[in-house]
Simulated assay, not measured.
Amino acid sequence: MHGHQGHAHDHHDHAHHRPAPSDKRYTIAIALNLAFVLVEGAAGFFASSTALLSDATHNLSDVLGLALAGGAAWLAKQQTSERRTYGYSKATVLAALANALVLVIACGGILWEAGRRFFAPEPVEPGFIMAVAAIGVVINGATAMLFLAGRKEDVNVRGAYLHMLADAGVSAAVIVAGAAIWLTQAQWIDPAISVAVVLLILWGTWGLLKESLDLTLDAAPANIDVAAVRDYLASQAGVTAVHDLHIWAMGATKPALTAHLVRPDGGDDVFLAEVADGITQKFGISHVTLQIERAQRDDCEHC
Rank of each mutant, 00 (worst) to 15 (best):
A67F: 13
A42E: 03
V138D: 01
H12S: 11
A42S: 10
Q185A: 15
A133Q: 07
K210T: 12
L261I: 09
S54F: 06
G267M: 04
G238V: 10
V239E: 06
A67H: 04
S81M: 03
G238T: 10
G159C: 09
V104N: 02
E153R: 13
M1Y: 09
A91N: 08
A273K: 13
V37D: 00
H14Y: 08
R117D: 06
G284D: 13
G6K: 12
T57A: 14
A73N: 11
D268I: 09
V37C: 11
V39T: 10
G127F: 10
G207R: 13
M1D: 13
A295K: 13
R116S: 09
W188C: 04
F147R: 04
R117Q: 14
A51M: 10
L32Q: 00
T240V: 15
A95C: 11
A42K: 00
V157E: 06
R151G: 06
V242H: 09
Y26A: 03
W206V: 12
I175D: 05
F119N: 06
K24N: 07
M145I: 09
H7M: 13
L209P: 02
A95H: 07
L60Q: 01
S49D: 01
I292H: 09
S194T: 14
V242R: 07
L75R: 14
I193K: 05
P19F: 03
A222F: 04
W206C: 02
W182Y: 14
E113V: 15
A227V: 02
A180M: 14
H17E: 09
V132L: 05
R83G: 03
G71Y: 13
E293T: 07
D167N: 15
A273M: 01
D23V: 02
V124Y: 04
A237F: 08
T50H: 12
S89R: 15
C300L: 02
G44R: 08
A227P: 00
T240E: 15
I139C: 02
E211Q: 11
R230T: 11
V138N: 00
T205L: 05
E211L: 03
D225E: 08
T253G: 00
D225L: 02
H9N: 10
I285G: 05
A259V: 09
M250H: 04
V195R: 12
A56I: 10
L94M: 15
D244R: 15
F271H: 07
D13P: 01
T85F: 03
L34W: 04
P19E: 14
A219R: 11
L165C: 07
A172R: 10
I175E: 06
L32A: 01
I28G: 00
G150T: 04
K24W: 05
L94N: 02
Y26R: 03
L183H: 08
